[in-house]
């Protein structure tokens, strides 16, 4: 597994990163309990729009994929599908300890334990579940990272595609399609 080393960005990328840092559109995948912390973060108490952030309807439009909590293997396939439909540059934020190390579901047969084996996570937010303050704080962090060009998980995913795919296949296995509704 090789690391992404280069950090000399072209001017186009520097300017682009400035825009991308100040306008973060999210696609959040409400996989687990954490999703409930998003509404207060969006509405008048914390108001994430002041950072230029907002929810978006489809992965095509979004910049950030938010995995809000535990991820069952069944959902993982959908999450990967969505991630691959997003436009570069794209970022992944793992939300809560479940994405970090499995959390209280660490020994479940149905969930994955470590999100970054399957998708390139740029930022984790620890906590079970993280409160809006923590979320706002970490988004501040994410913005800084994007501005500096440090959030390059998407490049990492491209360059280590086989490694990610192998991990994904490992946990998902191959699917045989019978008809439209049965796999």
């Amino acid at each position: 597994m090789h690391e992404v080393q280069k950090n000399d960005r072209s001017l186009w990328e520097v300017v682009g990163d400035y825009f991308r840092a100040n306008s973060i559109w999210m696609k959040w995948y409400c996989t687990g309990c954490g999703a409930i912390e998003m509404p207060p973060t969006m509405t008048s108490r914390f108001d994430m729009e002041q950072l230029g952030m907002g929810p978006m309807a489809t992965p095509r439009q979004a910049d950030v994929l938010l995995i809000t909590g535990y991820l069952s293997t069944k959902t993982l396939r959908r999450v990967i599908y969505s991630y691959e439909q997003m436009q570069d540059p794209k970022y992944v934020v793992g939300f809560g300890s479940c994405t970090l190390n499995g959390g209280i579901y660490y020994d479940s047969y149905a969930t994955i334990n470590q999100l970054d084996k399957y998708l390139p996570v740029d930022l984790y937010i620890a906590g079970c579940m993280p409160r809006p303050e923590a979320i706002m704080n970490s988004f501040g962090e994410l913005i800084e990272m994007i501005k500096k060009g440090e959030a390059k998980g998407w490049k990492h995913y491209k360059e280590n595609h086989e490694w990610y795919k192998a991990n994904q296949m490992d946990s998902l296995g191959e699917v045989i399609i019978h008809d439209e509704f049965h796999e």
Binding site: W12, V15, G16, F19, R20, N22, S23, W25, G52, D63, Q87, D88, P89
Partner: peptide, 9 residues
């Protein structure tokens, strides 16, 4: 910013 960001992607 939103529009230019979209152009930059």
């Amino acid at each position: 910013i939103d529009i230019f960001k979209a152009f930059s992607k």
